[in-house]
Simulated assay, not measured.
Amino acid sequence: MPTYVAFEHPPLPLPLAHAFAAFFALSYVGSIYVSKNARVSPNNGQPAPARARAKDPEERWRNDPGVIRARLLAVSLSTLASCVAVLMLMWVTGGAKKELFHEALISTITRLGLAHAPLLPCLVTPLLYLGPLYFEFLVGRLPLQRHWNIKLDLFPVVATWQGWRNYIIAPLTEEIVFRGCTLAVYHFAGLSRTKMIFLTPLTFGAAHVHHAWETYNRLGRTASAAKFATIQTLAQLAYTSLFGFHCAFLFMRTGSLLPAISSHIFCNIMGLPAFGMHIRQLPSWRIVLAYILGIVGYVYTMDRWTKTQSSLYWVHSGDRPIY
């Protein structure tokens, strides 16, 4: 039996889906600017060159614990509001009857990818990082190896406010909002798989553009600071959009948020692959081979390891998709 209310035709007009998606993205980013405690303070000091400068005592920067706490609360509340919006959409579309609320709740949980948690698809992303992982193994920095330290390597991830932001709350809330909620409403509007995979992640990339202001302010609000912030933001827009394509496919293919969330956490911990640096530090054909095998393995397993019969986003009845 399906755990969602299914429709033969898209019940949501596409313009309304755009409105929902805009609400999800704008409320998520905008929430961190509502509270004064969550906003970074402007630079009132003298302009500095495009490099990190000393922090004034009265300033609030992005990595200040108080700013992080306020922002985590803000995005958590925004994420909850987006989930409630999807729930209300399911309820109203199902007939707006009180006796259908339970069905709408179950349908929402399923459409947000919270109904099941497949483990095999969670291994696709680590396989892509076979090269960087092999390098870390060679230098002894993997967990429990000689150069791995609980205080230096584990505590910053789980016992600091920056760690909670970067590796727990941000991946969780961003995937719920920009994958679960956004893809749910676009699927409800009948958008094609291709467009959902390759267009909706652009909002995820654009949601990071506001960091340009914080970088510009931190570096002194000069012309060189503006140039650096622009270049950095464009690069971030590119790789966050590419990462969004990856997570959108994982979510739609599996019907679960767990592979996307685990990929997000893993990539935030690992960072971007640094092939050039790895080869310079340890020139070895084995590292090159590990990078190649990781890419080949990723391509091979992405389709095979993510195949499931329980995804609403990848199921068809005959030749017709189900909404």
Rank of each mutant, 00 (worst) to 15 (best):
K307Y: 04
A290H: 02
G180E: 08
T240S: 09
C247S: 15
L282H: 13
H187E: 03
L144P: 07
M252K: 00
D153F: 01
P126V: 12
N166P: 06
E136P: 01
S310A: 09
A104F: 14
D153G: 04
Y4P: 00
T240I: 00
A85K: 05
A85T: 15
L272S: 07
G205S: 09
C122F: 09
A25R: 02
V75M: 15
A70Q: 03
F228H: 05
A52I: 10
F204Y: 14
T306E: 10
T125I: 15
G95T: 06
S317Y: 11
L130N: 13
Y323F: 07
A235C: 09
S311H: 01
A19V: 10
I231H: 05
L120N: 08
I279H: 05
I197V: 15
I197A: 06
L191C: 07
L282T: 06
Y291P: 11
L26S: 01
A96C: 08
L16V: 14
V67L: 07
R286I: 06
Q236P: 03
T306H: 12
M88L: 15
G180H: 10
A48T: 14
F24C: 11
L199Q: 06
T108S: 15
L73T: 09
L100R: 15
L16K: 13
E214Y: 12
E99P: 01
M90V: 08
S224D: 08
G163C: 08
Y323G: 01
P259T: 05
T182N: 04
L250T: 15
A54E: 12
L138F: 06
Y4N: 09
K55F: 02
H102R: 11
M1V: 12
G318R: 11
S192P: 10
M252I: 05
L12N: 04
L130K: 09
V158G: 03
L128P: 01
V296D: 01
E103K: 15
A248Y: 00
F266S: 11
P11A: 06
I322R: 10
N44D: 11
R221C: 11
A229K: 02
L73E: 08
N268T: 05
D56N: 09
T160D: 02
P47R: 11
R218V: 03
S284C: 09
N166C: 09
L119T: 04
F178V: 00
P15T: 09
V92G: 10
R53W: 01
L237Q: 01
L202V: 14
L154R: 06
N149P: 01
I261T: 13
A22H: 00
A25S: 10
P273H: 08
V86W: 10
T230K: 01
A85N: 07
W148C: 06
A117I: 08
S31G: 12
G271K: 00
A159R: 12
T306D: 14
L105I: 09
Q236A: 09
T160H: 03
H211Y: 13
R62M: 14
W314G: 01
F135I: 05
P11F: 04
A159Q: 13
R221P: 02
R286D: 05
R62T: 12
V158Q: 05
I231N: 07
L258Q: 04
T200Y: 00
F275N: 02
F188C: 02
S224M: 09
W148Y: 14
K55P: 01
H147P: 04
I322M: 10
N44Y: 05
H278D: 11
F204V: 03
M270Y: 05
L26N: 00
V139G: 12
I269L: 13
L183E: 10
